[in-house]
Simulated assay, not measured.
Amino acid sequence: MYIITILLCTLAKAVMSQTRDIFPAKVLVPQKIVTKNTNLPVTCSTFGFKKQPGLVHVYLWKDGFGIQSLIQKDQVTDTTFILADVTIQNSGNYSCVYSKNDYSLSEVTKRGDNVIPILVVDNFLPADISVSGPPAVSEGDDITFRCTVSPPLQTACGSQPILSYLRKNETILQVQPFNVEQREATFTIQGAVLRDSGQYSCVVLPSKCIDGQEEKLYGNNAVFIEVKENVLRGLAYYAMVSVMVVLLLCFLLWINKRGLGSFHKLRGLCQMENLTVAAAPSAPEEELETPTSSFSSEEEEGYANSEFIDTVAHNSQRDEQEDPYHTIDDTLDNGQAQVNTAAMPSALCLYAVSGRRIPPPLLPEL
């Protein structure tokens, strides 16, 4: 008993001596929740705590024991420790102290001015996904997914909004705010089509952590959705198109038939008009006096005029064959041609009788 008492007194003196030699410092971190496999800087500041100038030993403390130490030079108040490629084991309570003496890390048990809890988490949380209703649906149906997280929600990237991501195969399809209190989110695909078939999963993470991590995300499970073709809807669609085509053809046939009937009726009326014009009496030809005696100067002049009349008549007949729309009665009065309007059918009748669909040219004004 006497020996145990001596040992306890010796230990107490050592602790009191260390307490007098080790002084508190302030610990600073940029964020309390960090992502796994990243680097975390932890700064120990002696500003306002260092009483005497000179070199000091700064110790980074975690959960009651020192884990790293660095030498802080004179006139320097901040010393930064880098925790590289942090893992889940790096989670814990951190603090800082300093001393003039160099101690082993196991001897540093005194905590600093403050303690900061640091949590190391995965860069995303795999979630559970389920589907409301059967996994096989028809085209046009709605598909509803439910994304849930079982453990307490702890994510990195500070206090960013927590979002849930619906993934189809390897692509993010939808994003919804995650209900932290109920630990779930709901996704809906409205009017499903054939290309919506595939494997679906979901994950939860803050919005800014998605950059560069899309191909690494995965959920706790996946559901396969099969979208089948709706036969009745396809038949209804093709039937509607067929009815529209038939109605359009019937309308075009009706328009064509009505147009041809009016055209033939107009042609018959014009033929009757032509018969009426043909039955009209022609003007009596002027009788030419025929001399009985030998040729005089007047007779020679009349003979020359008759030859000129024959030539003009021949040219007029040729012009009528080339242009059936005009009938010209050539006369010799001052060598001018006049249009015989009495024997000329109307332009509309000429169009109907010709049977052409292009309207005839306009007749010259008299």
Score class of each variant (00 low, 15 high):
Ile3Ala: 12
Ala25Met: 02
Ser45Tyr: 05
Leu55Met: 07
Val56Ala: 07
His57Trp: 14
Trp61Val: 11
Gly64Val: 09
Lys73Glu: 07
Asp74Glu: 13
Gln75Gly: 04
Val76Pro: 00
Thr80Asp: 03
Ile88Ser: 12
Tyr98Arg: 05
Ser99Ile: 09
Asn101Gly: 00
Asp102Tyr: 08
Gly112Met: 07
Ala127Trp: 07
Val131Pro: 01
Ser132Trp: 04
Gly133Tyr: 09
Gly133Gln: 07
Pro135Leu: 07
Asp142Trp: 01
Thr144Asp: 03
Val149Leu: 12
Thr155Ser: 08
Ala156Arg: 09
Cys157His: 12
Ile162Phe: 01
Leu166Asp: 03
Asn169Pro: 00
Gln182Lys: 15
Ala185Ile: 01
Ala192Tyr: 06
Ser201Gly: 13
Lys208Ser: 07
Lys216Arg: 14
Lys228Met: 04
Leu232Asp: 14
Leu235Tyr: 13
Val243Arg: 15
Leu248Val: 07
Asn256Ala: 14
Gly259Ala: 12
Lys265Thr: 10
Gly268Gln: 14
Gln271Val: 04
Glu285Trp: 05
Thr292Cys: 02
Glu298Asn: 05
Glu298Asp: 10
Glu299Ala: 07
Phe308Trp: 00
Ala313Asn: 13
Ala313Ile: 04
Gln321Lys: 15
Glu322Asn: 14
Thr327Ile: 12
Gln336Ile: 08
Val339His: 11
Thr341Tyr: 13
Ala343His: 09
Met344Val: 08
Leu350Glu: 15
Tyr351Asp: 14
Gly355Ile: 05
Pro361Thr: 04
Leu366Val: 12
